[in-house]
């Protein structure tokens, strides 16, 4: 994979979530994603960071989270990768809960899957977890799909 357009390391502190949201929203806007799509990225990243801080690092404020961002073309979008060194969790547990079960908590993973176009959790060989998410501009994704469809018909 190419060098990321942005690579940052942050401490596992809730107060850093708002600036990360703002920065990723700004990046998304610059690559052509609309306001709704930027909002979806901000919320998904917020939920991912919340899960890492709360469940991965058990609210330890001095652990590390690495965030890498790639601008995507054809279709236009962003790929965001978040790495941590938290103890591994069972991958099958990383799915949203049933929404009919009305209770606090457990919504974060559901929101990530709902808001992003692709979501992939994995274990890192060096320890910790990796989450890679992608969000595409709706029109670009539609055009890309149309092109693929057109080509396949030729």
């Amino acid at each position: 994979m190419n060098e990321p357009h942005l690579h940052a390391r942050i401490l596992s502190r809730p107060e850093l979530m708002a600036p990360m949201r703002a920065m990723l929203c700004e990046l998304a806007s610059r690559v052509g994603l609309n306001e709704t799509e930027c909002g979806h990225i901000a919320l998904a990243i917020d939920e991912a960071l919340t899960n890492i801080i709360r469940h991965g690092y058990k609210n330890d404020p001095d652990s590390h989270i690495w965030i890498s961002v790639w601008e995507l073309q054809n279709p236009t979008g962003l790929r965001i990768q978040m790495d941590d060194l938290a103890p591994n969790v069972e991958l099958k547990k990383l799915k949203g809960r049933e929404l009919d079960d009305i209770r606090p908590g457990g919504l974060g993973v559901h929101l990530i899957y709902s808001l992003m176009d692709s979501v992939h959790f994995s274990r890192r060989t060096e320890g910790g977890m990796r989450l890679v998410v992608e969000k595409f501009h709706a029109h670009a994704a539609a055009n890309s799909y149309a092109n693929v469809k057109h080509n396949s018909q030729v």
Partner: peptide, 9 residues
């Protein structure tokens, strides 16, 4: 803006 922490609250 509100995230799932706000919803849980």
């Amino acid at each position: 803006y509100m995230d799932s922490s706000g919803l849980a609250t």
